[in-house]
Design a protein around this nucleic acid. Structure first.
Length: 420
RNA sequence: GCGGAUGUAGCUCAACGGUUAGAGCACUGGACUGUGGCUCCAGGUGCUGCGGGUUCGAGUCCCGUCAUCCGCCCCA
C-alpha cells in the first residue's frame, strides 16, 4: 500500500519552510510591537462552539466542518476558524478580569472540508488577532494599518482594502424587513442556493456570485442605508481614521461575511494576484459574541489572514534562500573524530552554523559536500596540523587558505561575518 | 457538491497500439588515497497514479477510482 498525504493537506518541506518562518516572524514582530500577545488554543473543540458562534446555516458549518464523535460519544470538531476558540478561552479563563483591552493573536492550522484548489487547502493556516474591550473605531483602523504595515514589510503589492458595515442587531431588524420585501416576489428568479438562503438567512443572498442573482441584487436595498445613528457614526469615524492613516479603501456594500457573529464593521483585503482565491485578510467587529456565550458584554473585533496565500504572494517578491552552514569541518586520517567534535563544538558555541563529515571519506568528497552545502569556510582537521595544535582553514569563495589555531580561526570567522 | 483538463525517473518533459521505456538537470560512487566548481566514466534513475476491460499485444484505446490543477461555489 502506498501511503500519501490526505487530500487537501500538504507537507511543508525544508526548502519552503523558511518562507513560512519569515512570514510568521514578521507577523509576530509587528503584532507584539502593537502590544498583542499570543494565545494558543486547542485544535479540537466541542462542535457546539462553532455551531452556535459561526451559525448553523452558514456554509462552514453546514458542509465544511470536520465533525466526529470521540470514544465517549462527545461531538468534536476540528476548528474551522480561530475566533470562536479565542472567545471561549477569553470567557473560560476570565480574561475580562485582566486590564482592558485584551489584544490577542494566534498562528495555527484550521480545517475545512472543501474541494481543494490552489490557495485553498483543507488544512490551512491563519494568523489572526482578536481585541476585546475596545468599542472605538480607532481599533478597526489600527488593525487595517497593521495589515498594511505587515504587507509593506513583505513587499506585497496589488491588494485593496474593502470595508462595509452590517450594523448592529437593531439596524438589522429594519434592514432585514426591507430586504425581505425586496426579495419576496423576485426570489423565484434566484438560484436554488439563494432560495434556500432566503428562507434561512436572507442576508446571505447578498453574497451570491451567480451572475443572474447579482443582476437582480443590483437594486437591492443596502444595509448601509439602514444603519442606526450609532452605527452610522461609528462607520463614519472609522473612515476618518483610515484617512488619517492614508489607507486607500473602497466601500463594498456586498460584504456580509460568511459567519453570523459579525456586527458593525466588516472588511476584507483582497489581491488580484491569486486568481479565484483572492481574499487574503478578512475580519470585522463582533460586539455581541462574548455576551452571547455568557461572558460580560464586551465589544470585540478581529481578523484572520491566510498564511498559504501570503506565502504564495511573498515568495515572488522575497526570494529568500534557506540558511546554509557557515563552516564545514572536514578531516583526514584515523582516529580524529574526537578532534572534529572539539573543533565544531567551539565553532557552534560562537553561534556559527556548522556541519561536519560524519563518515570517513576522501577529503575531495568532503570539499565537494561543503561546496554543495554552500558553506563559506572549511576547516580541515588532519594529523599534520594536530601536531602543532592548529588547523588548516580554507575560504571557499576564493580558495585562500592558511594554518591557524582554533582561537585564531574563530577570530577570523567573527571578523569576516561582521563585515557582511 | 458540480463542470473541464492532466497524471511517465526526485524535478522538467519525450516515446505511431508493436523489441527489454528515453533526454536534460539533480543524486551516489570513481578517475583524483590531503583540496570544491570543470571534464570524463559508471550507476538506483521506474509497478508509466491505482484497479479493471478491449486486444495476439496497452504508457498509448475504454470504464472506474484516487490525486493535482483550472472554473463554479465558498472563503482565509
Amino acid at each position: 500500500m502506498k501511503l500519501s498525504v490526505l487530500r487537501g493537506m500538504q507537507d511543508i518541506l525544508p526548502h519552503h519552510v523558511h518562507l513560512w518562518q519569515y512570514v510568521e516572524q514578521k507577523a509576530r514582530t509587528i503584532l507584539e510591537l502593537y502590544n498583542f500577545h499570543e494565545i494558543r488554543t486547542p485544535l479540537l473543540e466541542q462542535a457546539e462552539l462553532f455551531l452556535r458562534s459561526i451559525g448553523e446555516d452558514t456554509d462552514i458549518v453546514e458542509k465544511e466542518m470536520y465533525i466526529f464523535n470521540d470514544k465517549k460519544g462527545r461531538r468534536i470538531a476540528l476548528r474551522p476558524e480561530g475566533t470562536a476558540s479565542v472567545v471561549r478561552a477569553y470567557i473560560q479563563n476570565s480574561l475580562f478580569n485582566n486590564p482592558s483591552p485584551q489584544k490577542l493573536y494566534y498562528i495555527g492550522p484550521m480545517f475545512r472540508y472543501e474541494r481543494p484548489q490552489k490557495g485553498r487547502q483543507r488544512q490551512f493556516h491563519q494568523i489572526g488577532v482578536e481585541c476585546f474591550g475596545i468599542s472605538s473605531p480607532s481599533i478597526e483602523a489600527e488593525l487595517l494599518w497593521i495589515v498594511k504595515q505587515f504587507f509593506d514589510t513583505l513587499n506585497l503589492k496589488n491588494f485593496s482594502f474593502e470595508i462595509n458595515s452590517i450594523g448592529c442587531r437593531k439596524c438589522r431588524i429594519s434592514y432585514k424587513e426591507s430586504l425581505f420585501k425586496f426579495l419576496r416576489d423576485k426570489i423565484k428568479d434566484f438560484c436554488s442556493d439563494c432560495q434556500r438562503r432566503f428562507v434561512k438567512n436572507p442576508l446571505r443572498v447578498l453574497d451570491c456570485k451567480v451572475n443572474s442573482c447579482r443582476e437582480i441584487l443590483r437594486d437591492a436595498p443596502l444595509v448601509l442605508d439602514f444603519l442606526c445613528d450609532g452605527c452610522k457614526r461609528h462607520f463614519f469615524d472609522f473612515q476618518e481614521e483610515l484617512k488619517h492613516y492614508e489607507i486607500d479603501y473602497i466601500i463594498n456594500p456586498r460584504i456580509v461575511r460568511g459567519l453570523d457573529y459579525y456586527t458593525g464593521t466588516v472588511f476584507e483585503v483582497t489581491t488580484s494576484m491569486l486568481g479565484a482565491q483572492n481574499a487574503v485578510v478578512a475580519g470585522g467587529r463582533y460586539d455581541e459574541l462574548v455576551g452571547f456565550f455568557g461572558g460580560p458584554s464586551t465589544p470585540a473585533v478581529g481578523f484572520a489572514m491566510g498564511v498559504e496565500r501570503i506565502v504564495e504572494l511573498a515568495k515572488d517578491s522575497l526570494c529568500l534562500k534557506p540558511k546554509s552552514p557557515l563552516v564545514y569541518v572536514a578531516y583526514v586520517g584515523e582516529e580524529l573524530d574526537r578532534e572534529v567534535k572539539l573543533v565544531i563544538n567551539e565553532i557552534r558555541k560562537e553561534g556559527f552554523i556548522a556541519e561536519r563529515a560524519y563518515e570517513k571519506t576522501s577529503l575531495k568528497n568532503q570539499l565537494k559536500k561543503a561546496h554543495k552545502l554552500g558553506v563559506q569556510w572549511v576547516i580541515i582537521v588532519g594529523e599534520e596540523e594536530i601536531k602543532t595544535s592548529s588547523y588548516r582553514w580554507k575560504r571557499m569563495v576564493d580558495g585562500a587558505q592558511g594554518i591557524a589555531t582554533l582561537e585564531e580561526i574563530i577570530k577570523l570567522l567573527r571578523e569576516r561575518n561582521e563585515n557582511k
